[in-house]
Amino acid sequence: MTYRQRRALTAYAFLLPAIVYFIVFFFWPIAIELWASFRSGQPLIGKSEFAGMKNYLYIFQDKLAIKAISATMIYALGSTVFTLLLALGLASILAGPLKARNTIRAILFFPYIVSFVISALMWKSILDPYTGLLNAALLKVGLPPQYWLTDPDAAIWVLVAVSVWKDIGYAVLIYIAAIQGIPSHLYQAAELDGARRHHLFRDITLPLLMPTTLFLAVVIMIASMQEMALPYLMTGGGPANATRLYSLHVYETAFQGLNIGYASALSFVMFLLILLITWVQFKLLNRDIRHV
């Protein structure tokens, strides 16, 4: 064996665990899923037969799926936009010389490290219209109680709010790091060019945070599109299926409905949709910014 071959072999040997991991836990399940999505009957658990595009076409007739897609879009877009906006605002304040900033950062980051199950149940119990802390407090101060969790129009926004609450610490942390990575001489140069605070934010901070924003948008968007624990624990998909997010629908279709072929088709569509959205986000937002 030549040196080059040995070197290549060593490299592959080091890569092997990762390759095996991706094949076993990523590509193999995707392949199975794709296979199952073209079958009717009981693929994976029983007898099944080839069904062509039947499962994919059924999505268009499935009112629950269509409703789930729109709920998921609201949830994903809402979570992403509000998380980014709030995080950006907080990060610009917290990146500066503020006395209590470490304390505030820790408080903001706390929800991110709390188990999602715990935070979902916590918010559910706080927001419960009849037994919740929030309404007890509202009544105490003489304000009208809220019925968000029982209001089909409001419930999805409760989920959005919890998701923002959950992710904001992470986004703020990333934004602070990015803001602090912007060289201070750029701000000084801009000040000399006549820029005021709002110009600095608009013309320096914001554009230079674009790669960070893109990263966060993609990460939060993808995670939100796959969200299932939150509606599963907080609302059970209700009221009136207003919070039946796509993953919950897939889960119920597969495990409660035992429609594994159809559920596979649903998941595969989501897989493609996420791929597409990620690609579009990169196309739209990716600008080449290299500090020199």
């Binding site: 060289p183 000084q188 140069a189 000399l192 006549g194 005021r196 910014i289 290299r290 500090h291 020199v292």
Partner: peptide
């Protein structure tokens, strides 16, 4: 920005 001065920085400080 209102002093009528312009400055050239050591590391240029060009907006990337």
């Amino acid at each position: 920005g209102e002093r009528g001065v312009a400055m050239v920085f050591q590391n240029y400080a060009l907006y990337p």
